[in-house]
Write a protein that binds this DNA or RNA. Structure first.
Length: 520
RNA sequence: GGUGGAUUCGUCUAACGGUUAGGACUCAAGAUUUUCAUUCUUGCAAUAGGGGUUCGAUUCCCCUAUCCACUACCA
């Protein structure tokens, strides 16, 4: 077998926003492609005209772009869709609705070879049969047991078949599932899997009603045409893998059949089942990479809007169902590419953990420079109507970044650097604003006010010395000062705060506290 | 119901026949600190159950249980 260039694809359906599990699938494909010096292709599988959702395709592209997952081929990332083949995009178009004319002849080829047949049963008829079977506690299946008593080219005469093909518009082409054959498959993640064809049904491959193939046909044909070497997709496809094997066989494409890898699903954090849209709202975390507003106006939150960095999101996704075999947990995409491997993918489903997700973001936040973080914090400050010096914000950010998971935590952590306290935490007042401490605080404030050098280092040293030399209780004085400056028992060192806000603000805040607060 | 897949601390996972079953997140305690947080240290906590195979099973096989997926003219 000749060595082929690695070519993998991510093939979502534009039926709604891309789920984080989908992003993970895209990521794994991307990493695999890059690792092998291959190509990552983005194909849009929009063969379901009923479920098409406007905006979903753009959402998918934007989501991948946000994550830094750039396709080498396929629907481009600049929003412009590749319609015609070119050197970079030799298999265009990459949207199945635009490939419509391609599929029918393949479906017909299968009929001609005896691997498929025309079926004329109406949807209503099949629904009726399903309901009937259900009433008897059974399941209706269109397969070798029933196909000979249904309306199709296997039971109709050639003339009748031709007549119906001409006159009717709702017929389909179905795969003729072979009888009692064991299909032996190999999955890159799950290993050897065998399935007896008697448990399978005659899947629809092509629909005359909209002249479109179903997933199964379009998928196999396109993967073949696009010379895909590995198919890395969700576990929900594992049950249809035998069909896909059989399709490759029927077309005579076994030599270039891609290898398959089925990824386990992302599960909801509590209870059972796969992670779904509702879990996010219910449990308070996003399920989608980006905010999504459905055509009906319903809004779903996104990781981006919730304040996650794309690096953190990609990192946490990569580690959800895969591990490097070492104890390293923090990976950039560049580090992920060489480290990734299909055989270290975990077989069982992974429950998403929101706490761990926050931790990842915290780690990435800490890696950022104060200047970067200040720039990210600035819009929030401006929204509060604050005019602040960027250098000052940078200093403040440096003092509080260790305590934050997100940039939007900054204000809560640092408001007192920008505004005098308007309220005082009662518990702190109770504890530190005692009558006997007030004279001490008055003396200390007066001491600080006469300092010429308001640098953090100098204030800290002078303050310490003053307190110690005068035999004052360190904790009481410091916490009293903190109460006046912050209004609560929180925040960085008192000297840091004094140095940052400066003498005027220091004086004003202390005066205010003495005026407003009653001793406990 | 049928078919397929899965099953290690609460969660993500490591250990591909021999370990006191390791790490991370969470939680708890202690230390440091003028507070909160950080940081550091310590701790709590797992091989679903039952049979085999083996000198020895988390690891291999079988059964049971549980969970998940699929079972559409959806992907």
């Amino acid at each position: 077998m000749q060595q082929r260039q690695t070519r993998v694809r991510f093939a979502p359906s534009p039926t709604g926003p891309l789920h984080m599990g989908g992003v993970r699938t895209a990521l794994y494909n991307y990493l695999f492609a890059k690792q092998n010096g291959g190509k990552f292709i983005l194909r849009i599988e929009d063969t379901d005209s009923q479920r098409f959702v406007p905006g979903a395709e753009a959402y998918i592209i934007e989501s991948l772009r946000w994550c830094g997952i750039y396709p080498d081929e396929g629907v481009t990332l600049d929003g412009q869709v590749v319609e015609t083949a070119s050197e970079q995009h030799p298999h265009a178009p990459y949207r199945q609705s635009q490939r419509k004319p391609i599929y029918r002849k393949y479906a017909e080829e299968l009929v001609a070879k005896g691997y498929a047949y025309y079926a004329f049963d109406s949807g209503e008829e099949l629904d009726r049969l399903r309901k009937e079977a259900e009433a008897n506690g059974q399941t209706f299946t269109y397969n070798q047991a029933t196909r000979n008593s249904l309306t199709n080219s296997l039971t109709l005469s050639a003339e009748e078949t031709q007549r119906r093909l001409q006159e009717e518009t709702h017929w389909t082409i179905r795969f003729k599932m072979p009888e009692n054959r064991v299909v032996a498959m190999d999955d890159l993640i799950r290993g050897h899997v065998e399935v007896n064809t008697d448990t399978l049904d005659d899947k629809v491959l092509w629909k005359a009603a909209d002249q479109l193939p179903t997933y199964h046909l379009a998928n196999i044909v396109d993967d073949h045409l696009m010379e895909i070497t590995e198919v890395i997709r969700g576990e929900e496809w594992l049950p249809s893998l035998p069909l896909h094997y059989l399709l490759y066989e029927a077309f005579g494409w076994q030599d270039t059949q891609p290898r398959f890898a089925h990824l386990s699903l992302l599960l909801k954090p509590d209870g059972k089942g796969k992670l779904s849209k509702r879990d996010g709202d219910r449990l308070g975390f996003p399920v989608f990479p980006l905010r999504w507003e459905a055509p009906n106006g319903e809004v779903s939150r996104g990781y981006r809007e919730d304040g996650y960095y794309p690096e953190a999101f990609v990192n946490l996704l990569a580690l959800l169902g895969w591990n490097p075999g070492t104890e390293q947990e923090l990976f950039s995409v560049e580090e992920l590419i060489p480290a990734f491997s299909l055989d270290r993918i975990v077989r069982s489903g992974a429950k998403f953990n929101a706490d761990k997700a926050k931790w990842f973001n915290q780690e990435y936040l800490r890696k950022r420079s104060n200047a970067q973080l200040a720039a990210e914090f600035m819009p929030i400050l401006e929204e509060k109507g604050l005019q602040v010096n960027p250098a000052y914000v940078e200093t403040v950010v440096g003092l509080i970044k260790e305590r934050a998971h997100f940039v939007h935590d900054f204000w809560e952590l640092s408001s007192f650097f920008f505004e005098a306290p308007t309220t005082y935490d009662p518990q702190t007042v109770q504890k530190f604003w005692k009558a006997e401490n007030l004279p001490l605080l008055q003396q200390t404030v007066a001491f600080v006010q006469q300092l010429a050098d308001f640098s953090k280092e100098h204030v800290e040293e002078a303050l310490h010395q003053f307190i110690v030399e005068n035999g004052m209780p360190m904790g009481k004085v410091m916490n009293g000062l903190r109460l006046m400056l912050v209004g609560a028992s929180k925040g960085p060192g008192v000297a840091d705060i004094i140095a940052a806000i400066g003498k005027d603000a220091f004086t004003a805040r202390c005066e205010q506290a003495f005026a407003v607060l009653n001793p406990a």
